[in-house]
């Protein structure tokens, strides 16, 4: 009985699937799926290597500081970093006094309440504050940016496939649209062509426009490529500040486990030595 019912149910599913399949195949030949414009022109991120790649990877503190400088001078006007606190900059090798100064001089102030009157007010940031958002809310952000929302960058390298390479490619990928790009995919008013962006056209003007846009304190030559790479490294740190700890712990744990597993194997073999199985 079970088998009879089962067979009937199975044949029912097979019938419907067969109809679906035939419909799909006829549709496929009647109207072969055309390659979408995005699919044709979109490019995978460029290959770029960083000091934190691989299981032994570490951050390059100098690079992170340079990347922070690029963020501060270029990105911070529009993009927040609201999961990172000024105090976290100690990880980049800044001293406590430097961090206080950075917080105190940050161009965007922190919303607060006037202790006398209870009115909303703004105050200077302190080390314990997170990076203040450049816009009061999403509506303000959209209003100021042609209805495009500049995303918060705290997690951007984890929120995109191939995170650091994607950020690097996007920053260095602005170019004139290719001649064979169909008309409907050409960048409209206030949009810029970038084959590394999923939609091909994005509202962010090229942020890193010229060599020497920032002046690095450590004397590194601020080429566009260098700046894009440095800020990608910095944004990897903001997304995964515990990366070095993770790598270090991982190596120790794996070494321990390897020894323990070899011992467990030997023990298993010893115990079974007298048993055929």
């Amino acid at each position: 009985m079970v088998r009879l019912l089962g067979a009937l149910v199975g044949l029912g599913f097979l019938l419907v699937l067969a109809i679906s399949l035939v419909t799909g195949i006829t549709g496929f030949f009647r109207e072969p799926p055309t390659e979408t414009i995005e699919h044709k022109f979109h490019q995978d991120p460029k290959h770029v290597s960083f000091s934190f790649d691989g299981p032994f990877g570490k951050f390059d503190r100098q690079q992170l500081q340079r990347g922070f400088q690029v963020y501060k001078e270029v990105c911070a006007a529009c993009h927040g970093l609201n999961l990172v606190a000024f105090r976290n900059l100690a990880d980049l090798g800044y001293e406590e006094a430097e961090i206080k100064a950075i917080a105190n001089q940050w161009a965007i102030e922190v919303p607060d309440i006037n202790p006398e009157t209870g009115e909303p007010t703004m105050r200077k940031a302190i080390a314990a504050d997170r990076f203040p958002n450049p816009y009061a809310n999403e509506v303000a952000a959209r209003a100021a940016n042609n209805n495009a929302m500049p995303p918060d960058l705290s997690l951007i390298t984890k929120a995109r496939h191939h995170g650091p390479a994607y950020v690097y490619s996007l920053l260095t990928g602005y170019q004139n649209p290719p001649a064979n790009l169909p008309k409907e995919a050409r960048p409209g008013q206030g949009l810029y062509y970038n084959p590394y962006f999923p939609n091909l056209n994005l509202a962010m003007p090229p942020p890193i426009a010229a060599d020497g846009q920032v002046t690095y304190a450590d004397g590194t030559n601020p080429t566009r490529d260098q700046m894009a790479k440095d800020v990608s490294a910095f944004l990897t740190w903001t997304a995964e500040p515990f990366l070095e700890n993770r790598h270090r712990t991982g190596i120790a744990v794996l070494l321990f486990l390897l020894v323990a597993t070899v011992l467990a194997y030997l023990s298993y073999r010893q115990i079974w030595a007298s048993r055929k199985h």
Partner: peptide, 26 residues
């Protein structure tokens, strides 16, 4: 299997003790 001699026995115990110790430390 025929019973193992004293030497093998000690080594056997050592490995088992070591494996269990590692599990405990972990």
């Amino acid at each position: 299997a025929p019973p193992t001699g004293g030497e093998g026995h000690r080594r056997r115990d050592f490995i088992n003790v070591a494996a269990v110790s590692f599990a405990g430390v972990g």
